[in-house]
Simulated assay, not measured.
Amino acid sequence: MAGSNFVDYVKIFARSGHGGAGSAHFRREKFVAFGGPDGGDGGRGGSIVLQGDSQYWTLIHLKYQRHQFAEDGEGGSGARSSGKDARDIVIPVPLGTVAKRVVENEQGETELVPVGEVTADGERLVLLKGGRGGLGNWHFKSATNQAPRYAQPGEEGDEGAFVLELKVLADVGLVGFPNAGKSTLLSVVSAAKPKIANYAFTTLEPNLGIVECRDGKSFVMADIPGIIEGAHEGRGLGLRFLRHIERNSVLLFMVPADADDIRREYEILLGELTQYNPELLDKQRLLAVTKSDMLDEQLIAEMRTHLPEGIPALFISSVTGYNIPQLKDLLWEALHK
């Protein structure tokens, strides 16, 4: 991954601003012998806020800005003048960003506590709220205390470490072993230009493409880097990219026609996803048998009897275009079930 611009995991340290102190000022003017309290309120401290931005697709800008500190609010002053609120620190993030706070439990171990996620353009997620400004002394004036000589201090801000993870947002996710033909399919059905070569782990980062169907309809397809057996334990590219599959509505499993056992490969892929997150079993699944251009109808009919049961399957070839239109229709129907 050296030199890659795709960053989907970053840890930052953030601190929100303190609220400004309220003022304990008294009115002092010529010809006003006993001016009452007129201390203004303090300003609010700056907050740390994540904001979804559809123009971003990676967290690389935070890789070099790991410290985010907001300013403190201004103190209040006389004539009931309130201090100025501090500016919030608004951090643009790509859609699909999940924020987790790093905390220490009773055993002294570090845990990640979910804070929220940003999935829409312009959506805001407050990581740390700025401290409230203190009240000036004029708030505390009463019939029995007409000259309060005290005001509230500003509320302290908050600080903490956060982990930001990006989970790619796509309608259809391509799931398969390295060299299953995922990148080739994406390059054929969309304008995406992923790297394609005849060796394992050609794809080192997710690629997105917009697939156009009939009648001007379209959906987003994601080419997820290849999975290997033991990926849920961190083998190969491991957990690095399994989380991207969580965001996809439909999973298209891809197994090449020249595989030793198509059913076995599908079961291994499904097992890796299940052990990573059992909820992935709830997603719609389809199977595409790739590189089928060398098969005749008789061989395809015979191979169908050995395919996994309970999952719609289609034999395709990205090189010749065999059954590619039918695959698009099948995916569109699955998305709208």
Rank of each mutant, 00 (worst) to 15 (best):
E265W: 14
E265G: 04
E265I: 10
Y266T: 06
Y266Q: 08
Y266M: 09
E267L: 14
E267K: 13
E267H: 15
E267Y: 11
I268P: 03
I268H: 10
I268V: 15
I268G: 06
L269I: 02
L269K: 07
L270P: 00
L270Y: 08
L270T: 12
L270N: 15
G271V: 03
G271R: 05
G271K: 06
E272P: 01
E272N: 08
E272C: 10
L273Y: 07
L273Q: 11
T274P: 00
Q275I: 02
Y276E: 01
Y276D: 02
Y276V: 08
Y276Q: 09
N277Y: 01
P278Q: 05
E279H: 08
E279S: 11
E279D: 12
E279L: 07
L280G: 04
L280T: 06
L280C: 09
D282C: 07
K283M: 04
K283D: 03
K283Y: 04
Q284T: 15
Q284R: 15
Q284S: 13
Q284L: 08
L286E: 03
L286V: 08
L287C: 04
L287H: 09
L287A: 10
L287Q: 06
A288Q: 07
A288S: 13
A288C: 08
V289C: 03
V289P: 00
T290G: 01
K291H: 15
K291N: 11
S292F: 03
D293H: 13
D293Q: 12
D293N: 09
D293I: 12
M294L: 15
L295C: 04
L295D: 10
L295V: 12
L295K: 11
L295G: 05
D296E: 09
E297N: 10
E297F: 07
E297P: 03
Q298D: 10
Q298F: 04
Q298P: 00
Q298N: 08
Q298Y: 06
I300C: 02
A301G: 03
A301R: 07
A301F: 00
E302V: 09
E302Y: 02
E302R: 13
E302C: 01
M303S: 02
M303R: 13
R304G: 05
T305G: 03
T305S: 10
T305D: 06
H306R: 14
H306F: 10
L307S: 08
L307A: 06
P308Q: 06
E309Y: 12
E309R: 11
E309W: 03
G310D: 09
G310P: 05
G310N: 03
I311P: 01
P312V: 03
P312K: 01
A313R: 05
A313W: 10
L314I: 10
L314Y: 01
L314S: 01
F315P: 00
F315H: 02
F315G: 01
F315M: 08
I316P: 02
I316L: 01
S318L: 02
S318Q: 01
S318M: 00
V319H: 13
V319I: 14
